[in-house]
Structure formats: C-alpha cells, structure tokens
C-alpha cells in the first residue's frame, strides 16, 4: 500500500531505457517517502527474461504479467492490468515513460481511476503543499514540474487528494543507475486472467516495423543542432558538413522540425530527446524553454545567432554574433586547418 510504482515498458523482452531511468528516480522518491518501490511488467514470454533488467534498480516488488496477447502493447489489456492492480495496491505515485506507449496508457488509467496525470515532466520532487482555499496542508506530495504554455512558463503541478499521483517523463530526462546488481526483490507472477477479461483483447496488430534509432543523439559527445534560423533544408546540409568533420551528431529544435527542415527524429527538447553532450553547438536556435530543457546540461554550449538577444545566449559559454551561413563554413575551415 502507498508505494511508488513504475510501469516498465518492454520492446520484445527488453526493458526500455526510459523505464530504467524511471526506476532509478522511483527508488529515490521511495527512499524520501520511506516506502517500497514496485514495478509492473507485462508482455508475452517475459518470465525469466526481464527480472534482472528491473530488480537491480532497487525494486522491492515486481508484478509480472506474462500472457499471450500482451505483446505487442495494445491499449485495453494493459489499461486493465494497471487499473485493477492499482485498485488493489493503492500506490501513491505511478511513473511511466512519456513515449507512445506511456502517453497512450497513462491517460486511460488516470481517467479510469479519476487521478491526476501530468505529461512530459522535466523534474520530480517531493515537498509540502498548502491548499490556500481550504487551508488543508499536505506533507509529502509529488511536485510534477514541466514547461507549459508553449514554453513561456514552468509550472509545478500537484495532485493533493487523488491517488496515484501520475506523471510521464521523456526518455533521457532522468539518469539510469543500477543500485545493486544483486538487489533482492520479490517477483510476483500475477494471474493475468484475474486482471484482464478476454473481451479486452480488441485491437489486432497486423504489422509492425520498428528499427533502432537512426541517430545516436543521446550518446553523442558533440551535437551540432539547428533551429528555425537555419532557414531551409539546404541550410541543414551545412550542419551535416560540420558534424562530419567534428564526428558529431545533428540535432534540431522543434521549430526546425515543424518547418520541415529535417526529420522529427532529430528533435531535442521537452517533446523530443534530452541530451547531455560535451559540446552543444546551437545554430540559429532562439532557445525556447522546451528546447533548453532538453540540452541545458550540455558541457559547453556554443550559440551561433545573428540576434544577440536570443534567449539561448543566456546559457551559452560562447556567443557568436553571426549567421549560420557565415559562421559554420568558417568553423569547418579552421577546424581542418588547426586539427592537423
């Protein structure tokens, strides 16, 4: 009762990175609250294959649901599992990834349980709260912190009275750290039919193509990233040229993706990938808070922008007042000259 739960998303028999990041965060939250960390994994043929990918993060109880029809993920059976499990276990917090699965599942579960859900959180903390209207005080609520309203504000959201307090978090926002490879957690193999009526298997997956990400933004030591200021698809080629000589990956802001300059896989920020490279070269990026949320922990930030008041310049180590067309070819030229 009252524990912290993490829904572990599986791709086949592999626990996704975001789930391991959330288990790490969940362990910390559980420690602060003095409660247990519990995990839920549902799929087909997963028994004996996923436990060691989950327990080492400090999971005290793993609820395992292994049955035909649970993989690949479809909305209704996984919803039934969480809703019925949560009615029984009454968690105080539930975390899941803010990806396609978590954003499909989270709202359904919150709607069924009438609990609050905050999407795409960039930080989670525990703290007190006072309801100014009723004067009621709360000792330890989950602060769900996220940029909102087009990134012009950062809001701290709480769910004072409804449980579980639910939040989704994007991949890469939290860090995954194994607590103890030999951590002793209990594995409960649940009877799936007690949770999922046969009538819930209503979506048939006809075909499925998943390929590993084409880019390696999350692990890249150097990222050359372009924004709306790059101006065009052709302009992005310059960034690829620079990335090639620096052995870097190319990223983008949402504005560049929305403008069709590049593929949406490249998007860095709150609703894209979160990165922590050694060097982040921001080309024509103004620096909306959603973008900054996804790159602010970069080691060295170089901003190339003709607008000296661009918000990103505030967090940059080097501000180059100039256009992308002017500066990037010079960077390539002088890198080639100096690195030999």
């Amino acid at each position: 009762m009252n524990n912290v739960f993490v829904y572990c998303e599986l791709e086949g028999h592999t626990v996704t990175e975001v789930s391991q990041e959330l288990l790490t965060k969940g362990r910390k939250l559980a420690n602060t609250l003095g409660v247990k960390l519990e995990a839920v994994a549902a799929g087909e043929g997963i028994k004996g294959k996923v436990e060691q990918q989950i327990l080492p993060y400090g999971v005290d109880v793993l609820h395992l649901f292994d049955a035909k029809g649970l993989s690949p993920y479809t909305s209704k059976p996984h919803t039934a599992i969480l809703v019925n499990l949560f009615k029984k276990e009454k968690p105080q917090i539930c975390l899941m990834g803010a990806d396609v699965v978590g954003r499909d599942l989270g709202p359904r579960v919150s709607s069924a349980l009438k609990s609050g859900l905050t999407a795409d959180c960039t930080a989670l903390e525990i703290g007190p709260h006072e309801d100014k209207k009723t004067g009621k005080t709360y000792e330890q609520l989950l602060y769900q912190i996220r940029p909102a309203f087009g990134g012009n504000i950062v809001a701290t959201i709480v769910n004072p009275d409804n449980r579980p307090q639910m939040a989704t978090v994007r991949s890469g926002v939290m860090k995954a750290e194994v607590l103890d490879p030999a951590y002793k957690g209990e594995v409960i193999v649940e009877k799936v039919e007690d949770y999922v009526p046969q009538t819930e298997y209503v979506t048939r997956v006809i075909e499925r193509h998943v390929q590993a990400s084409k880019n390696n933004l999350k692990g890249a030591p150097i990222i050359v990233s372009g924004g709306y200021g790059v101006g065009s698809k052709e302009g992005f080629q310059l960034l690829y040229d620079l990335a090639k000589v620096l052995h870097a990956e190319v990223g983008a802001s949402r504005a560049a993706v929305d403008a069709g300059f590049c593929d949406h896989d490249l998007q860095i920020g709150q609703t894209g990938v979160t990165v922590r490279p050694k060097v982040y070269i921001a080309c024509g990026i103004s620096g909306a808070i959603q973008h900054v949320a996804g790159m602010k922990e970069s080691g060295i930030i170089v901003s190339i922008n003709p607008d000296e008041n661009a918000p990103i310049n505030q967090i940059a180590d080097y501000v180059i007042n100039g256009t992308v067309e002017e500066v990037v070819p010079k960077m390539i030229k002088y890198y080639k000259q100096n690195s030999k």
Partner: peptide, 13 residues
Amino acid sequence: PTKVKHVENIVFK
C-alpha cells in the same frame, strides 16, 4: 485532480 502549485516565468540564469 491536478492543481497548479506554482508558475514561474522563464528567466534564464
């Protein structure tokens, strides 16, 4: 169920 506890206008440090 969700309440906005606090809103911060964005000013980068």
